[in-house]
């Protein structure tokens, strides 16, 4: 009878482990589903478009004049000579995805706000391709409304960046911030991983894509995986850290994203620069997110609900003090015990 009792705790432990396993598997499958939707969102810019209603946008009807051709992969027109209907393929660079455009920052613009009104006639005049395209600062510079985005600082940082120094005028804001697609992210995206994926996709658009890369150079782009093979847990690093975190330098703390892209030799390569309490990581996106969560969900949740974990960087002051106190008591206890022992 007594013997039987001995095995009861073993069963309790077994059932606990089984239970933990079930919770783990359930949460794992829920997560992988969430990850897949995330991936789908990141890839949306390449997704074939579904018919949707965009009439809530001020200029949707007017824009359709352009998008009826530029909104899909083919367009048709009537040949004025032969009176025959022609169908042609649209150049991929000239296709504007409605779904992406109407979610982007510039969704409330008319096409001809930025492009010449002369485009309203078809066939478009040949000289229109010489048209000067507006720059970010042409609209966003010196405007009170945009002060919080610090466009002037961004411009200054960009002037000193490797992109600008290497490629001068050829490298414009649009190279990274597609005016028809770009949307601010860190401020609006709840999920830090999505922000990271979105921002990294911007870099990969050229650095992971030879034909885009070669718009500015004749060289082949270096293989990012082998270049970064010194990173342990490479995949986790790529999913949790934005390229700009290591490859930029902040001149001014007020800009959310540093625009001074460093030459490759100056990029962060020292583990401690992220894995320490003064982590460069915690100074940017993560700091922004932590502050955000704290102000919207309260201090407690801000401390407990934490998406990010960086070894060495998340040191909790109180836990540290507590652990030192415990170690102190244990050592003190040992010393007292040893003294009494030797005195007796």
């Amino acid at each position: 009878m007594v013997k039987k009792l001995n095995y009861r705790p073993a069963w309790v432990i077994f059932i606990l482990i089984l239970f933990a396993g079930i919770v783990f598997i359930l949460s794992y499958s829920a997560n992988s589903k969430a990850d897949r939707t995330e991936a789908a969102i990141a890839l949306k810019e390449n997704k074939p478009e579904q018919k949707k209603d965009y009439s809530e946008h001020k200029h949707a009807t007017e824009n359709e004049n352009c998008l009826k051709c530029h909104g899909q992969s083919k367009y048709s027109y009537e040949n004025s000579e032969s009176k025959k209907k022609n169908t042609k393929k649209m150049y991929t660079e000239l296709i504007i995805n409605r779904e992406v455009f109407y979610e982007s920052n510039h969704r409330e613009f008319k096409c001809i706000d930025c492009h010449s009104e002369d485009y309203q006639t078809f066939p478009h005049q040949g000289n229109l391709r010489m048209e000067a395209k507006p720059n970010c600062l042409d609209c966003h510079g010196g405007d009170e409304k945009y002060a919080k985005f610090h466009f002037e600082n961004i411009e200054k940082e960009f002037q000193e960046s490797a992109h600008s120094e290497k490629h001068s005028e050829d490298f414009t804001c649009w190279m990274c911030h597609n005016p028809h697609a770009y949307k601010i992210n860190a401020r609006s995206n709840e999920n830090i991983k999505k922000t990271i994926a979105y921002d990294n996709a911007i870099c990969l658009n050229c650095h992971g894509n030879l034909s885009n890369y070669q718009l500015l150079t004749d060289k082949a782009n270096p293989n990012l995986l082998t270049k970064h093979d010194w990173l342990p847990n490479q995949k986790l690093h790529f999913l949790s850290v934005r390229c700009v975190e290591c490859h930029t330098k902040k001149i001014n703390d007020s800009t959310l994203v540093a625009h001074k892209i460093l030459p490759k030799k100056e990029a962060v390569r020292n583990c401690d620069q992220c894995h320490s309490t003064n982590s460069v990581l915690l100074a940017s996106l993560y700091k922004y997110k932590i502050k955000e969560v704290r102000s919207t969900k309260g201090f407690f949740k801000g401390v407990i609900v934490n998406d990010s974990y960086v070894i060495g960087a998340n040191r909790n002051y109180y836990l540290n003090v507590l652990s030192l106190i415990i170690v102190g008591f244990v050592i003190l206890g040992i010393i007292i015990h040893a003294v009494i022992r030797t005195l007796n």
Binding site: A30, N31, K193, I304, N306, S308
Partner: peptide, 8 residues
């Protein structure tokens, strides 16, 4: 799993 119960 990237999220477990209430946290990462």
């Amino acid at each position: 799993p990237s999220r477990f119960l209430w946290t990462s």
